[in-house]
Amino acid sequence: MKTVLHKADTRGTAFFGWLHSRHTFSFGRYYDPDRIHFGALRVLNDDIVEPGMGFGTHPHDNMEIVSIPLQGDLEHKDSTGNTEVIRTGDVQIMSAGSGLTHSEYNHSKDDKVNFLQLWVFPKEENITPRYDQKTFKSEDRNNQVQTVVAPDNEQALWINQDAWFSLADINKGLTLDYTLHSAENGVYIFVIDGLVDVNGLSISRRDGLGVYETEKLEIKAGSDSKLLLVEVPMQ
């Protein structure tokens, strides 16, 4: 088993008044040659946007982009005609494919929005851009893994990559096992909240741990914890 640990306080920071962002991997003005990606996972941003503010229209291509609101609601518009509000409990995926433009704004005029945005390199390039989102029940991840993005699961959002995104809420003292889909993959565990032990390694709130060259993870909660697990090809 091999691991790479990214403690929460080592992440890159961007602060523009209306935006406070923490970057697990190199992004924008933050650059660390040792933190470019974890396998096919290229970006993991933890963004807080002030009320009524947001990201103006900007382009993307050939990237799978997943957004997960943790608190508040996010308003999305794109050049393919989608205008949506992504609420806490929802997961959104956008295949930028051959190219599109989009904007993201805090839907509220009163409250901040905090969301995770992750970018994954695609399996096939230049596909027709696509958009999807879905609401997932929180009770379906109580002390179990809830798959929210996958290439092979009709209950999840489809992704143009052999990648699986899962959420799990684990009560203190309980243990979950996660079996990888392929020996060629790795799993990046991001602690949304709490404290967990993964195969003997302890990580806490907003820490990230990449694990690869292993078949299974054993995750034990040291406190009530909320996790995001992202399994991706390492090559």
Rank of each mutant, 00 (worst) to 15 (best):
D110I: 15
L116R: 02
L116E: 04
W119C: 00
W119N: 03
F121R: 13
P122M: 08
K123W: 07
E124Q: 10
E124V: 15
N126W: 10
N126G: 04
N126M: 02
P129H: 01
P129Y: 03
R130A: 14
D132C: 08
Q133T: 10
T135I: 12
F136A: 00
K137I: 14
S138E: 12
E139N: 15
R141N: 08
Q144V: 13
V145Q: 11
V148D: 02
V149Q: 01
A150C: 04
A150F: 09
P151T: 10
N153Q: 10
Q155V: 02
A156C: 02
A156W: 00
W158N: 14
N160I: 04
N160C: 06
F165T: 00
F165N: 02
S166F: 09
L167V: 06
A168C: 13
A168T: 03
D169A: 10
D169W: 11
I170S: 05
K172N: 11
K172I: 11
K172T: 08
L174H: 11
L174F: 14
T175V: 09
T175R: 09
T175S: 07
T175I: 09
T175K: 08
L176K: 04
L176A: 06
D177T: 13
D177E: 09
D177H: 09
T179H: 13
L180Y: 07
L180S: 08
A183V: 13
E184W: 11
E184Q: 13
Y188G: 10
I189Q: 02
F190P: 08
F190I: 04
F190R: 07
V191N: 05
I192A: 10
D193C: 06
V196T: 03
D197R: 14
N199E: 00
G200R: 02
L201G: 15
S202M: 14
I203T: 03
I203R: 00
I203S: 05
S204D: 13
R206F: 14
R206D: 13
G210V: 06
V211R: 05
V211H: 08
Y212G: 09
T214D: 03
T214H: 05
K216L: 05
K216Y: 04
E218N: 15
I219N: 01
K220N: 07
G222M: 08
S223N: 06
D224L: 06
S225T: 06
S225V: 11
S225E: 03
S225R: 00
K226W: 08
L227M: 03
L228Q: 00
L229N: 01
V230H: 08
E231S: 02
